[in-house]
Write a protein that binds this DNA or RNA. Structure first.
Lengths: 224, 224, 224, 224
DNA sequence: TATGAATGAGGCTTCATTCAT
DNA sequence: AATGAATGAAGCCTCATTCAT
């Protein structure tokens, strides 16, 4: 993205043009914002174009149609978020600390990427049709499970985790709590107030979530 | 819905016609199905009409426009689901059993009402704008919290539940796990397979969820 | 079509409205003119609408899209022309006179319906895709062959026509000469002058064409 | 077109490039194919470029716009076909044999150059606007009439042909039958079957056509 | 209460063409 | 001589909504 800020090659005013990759990223950025905000069908190609340094016509030049643009935006959103996760260093921690850190990180990470959450919500509304077609996205999600599997193996080796712990179930649990926290904030706070989503409430929830997940992997006797 | 089968008021030829309430319900049904399936803006008034025994014009006669129809559909979806919840008898159970039953029931109830879940998803995509305006829906949701509050009070009186347990947080936890299970099934199974959503997987998850919630309210020494 | 001229039901200015069939015909008329003039892809829906008493929107109401409108226009063009042919009374004439009359009639009829000819030209440019799908049009064309078959049978019974005369070949011959006369007038006259298409030229060609066709069915000894 | 295979002028890397005439021909070829297949307005400059060894930009470099490219394509199509006709040697034959040969040749020649026929069809749909402007094409067509005029003169001198035979009318007849055979095959076979266009059918038609044309120039008493 | 016909605004997309290197 | 990127005008079509009976 800092490509966009690169100096124009020859000092020309229109320097950022003729830089296909920058234009693509510019469009993708605008598309993610618009799709996340409005949803697939409510999003307007004109509005996406308006958020762009380029024109509507170029959207069709780089991406073929609205649907294709949506596909690429979804991929980009996933890539951006998973990339953050991959930076996590967990190997040097004890299994329980590694898991705690991963849960807390996920909770925060989801909170910090509401656009991504919203795109996944929208994708679910559409029965994940687009995601199901994207092998790229599917590959992006393998590392999460691998991380959890490694933690489980180590925790079981240490005799602390239950032997029937399943990495996928674990991911389901972590995701459910972290995702819902962002996705359903609008309805939940409309019905039950906004306190849970203020700083204090979120801190408490975060702790609770870590606690719940850990409690579900520990053997009974070792539970904190 | 058996309203529809009620005898025509007089000897009119048109039978179910001339029965405004039946027509309203017919439309509302079709609207819920269409909105839940397609989302707010993707849903077509024409398609809703097609699912109806009556015509598009009548939709505008009974409901003023698409947005209003959506509001009523959302209310109807909530009413239908909360009604099921209210039938639960929990008072004769111990606090822990009552909570376990409520969690398990919610998990199942959500599973059994995917249309409702989808309408809430859609509402969240739209920042709960419609729901925020509906006092009717907000009233419908008071009993859930009251139920949980009663359970908490009893559990705390019994000295088994932690003193800082919060009914709203509890509801958040139960909802998160039960809601996500339905809402994110499309993306989750596209990425990580469908096993968790088959019968065996769901049974296991249900048990896990009950377990996690109970574990989070118990005092440490009493945890199962 | 005289429906269009029918008195408005109640003297209202907009009386011709709410008369679906009249609107359909109005659109169809405009469509034939536009398609015949410009071709399928050069024709503009806006221009068709402009030739209409109604609006572009109604074109999509009655016909679903441009292609469908084209299909109906093609059918209407065929129907209109074949209808003229069916009015021909040939049974009371001798076979040779009947044939001569049919040829002359076709030559004139084609000349008098250049829009029809142009639509068939366009259809041929498009490999008859649309026509091949229309069973309606195919049925419309059966009578022509039947007429010719009847003439042939009578002529052969009389011992005047060759025994190997084929009605379909005969139709091919008549069509070729009559069709080309209209279809290729632009290029032919651009290259070789316009005289053949002036009145005198056309009269001569018409005679020639009748002559050629008759000559090809007669037994040698009887040729005129 | 073997121009394309000419050795690159020097030791340039790009081989066939840098050979303007070859590039022109390449483009012209693609253009004829595309225009003949799709028609003038349905043909896409992009698609023409795709059929080319070069790029869309070069089309605009060599030809100025789509319309100009079409003009050149039309000229090229005519040139290519008329060139074949000019190779015919008719002088050493009797007038009647020469005419028979010319008719049969035209029938076959048209069949073998459907792209040319289609371009003429398209030109007629467009009222021969382009052709009318091209003096080049008009010159190309003079020899056909001259050939026929020569045959007529000889046939009349021999006392076999009618004195009122007109070379232009003759050309009209020959063209009509040979042209229609190709141009209207799609609609004709869609309506009346494909037999006439199979080998046997075409052979019979060809004979018929020769016969018809000859019959129309002979004096009555000499008719075959 | 009911209905088929009508509508206007606005959305997505295509296409020939030109720019900048 | 050659090319990828950029453009604006215009085309087809959809949709919620209202009219006239």
């Amino acid at each position: 993205m800092n490509i966009e800020n690169a100096d124009p090659p020859s000092g020309r005013k229109s320097g950022w043009k003729q830089n296909p990759e920058a234009v693509r990223q510019d469009i993708l950025h605008a598309a993610i914002a618009e799709f996340a905000e409005k949803g697939l069908s409510t999003a307007r190609v004109d509005d996406i174009a308006a958020k762009t340094k380029t024109s509507k016509r170029m959207i069709y030049y780089y991406f073929d149609d609205k649907q294709t643009l949506y596909e690429h935006a979804l991929e980009a959103a996933y890539a951006q978020v998973r990339q953050g996760e991959n930076a996590l260093q967990l190997d040097h921690l004890s299994p329980q600390d590694a898991l705690a850190k991963l849960v807390a990180f996920t909770f925060d990470h989801h909170r910090n990427h509401p656009d991504f959450i919203r795109m996944v919500m929208i994708e679910n509304v559409h029965h994940a049709e687009t995601l199901a077609k994207s092998e790229a996205i599917q590959k992006l999600n393998i590392p999460v499970i691998e991380k959890l599997a490694a933690i489980c193996t180590r925790g079981q080796a240490d005799g602390i985790f239950r032997t029937d712990v399943d990495p996928t179930v674990l991911h389901w649990q972590i995701s459910a709590l972290s995702f819902f926290n962002v996705s359903n904030r609008p309805t939940f706070s409309a019905l039950f107030g906004d306190q849970l989503f203020a700083e204090a409430g979120q801190a408490a929830l975060r702790e609770q979530v870590v606690h719940m997940v850990l409690a579900s992997v520990y053997k009974s006797k070792d539970r904190p």
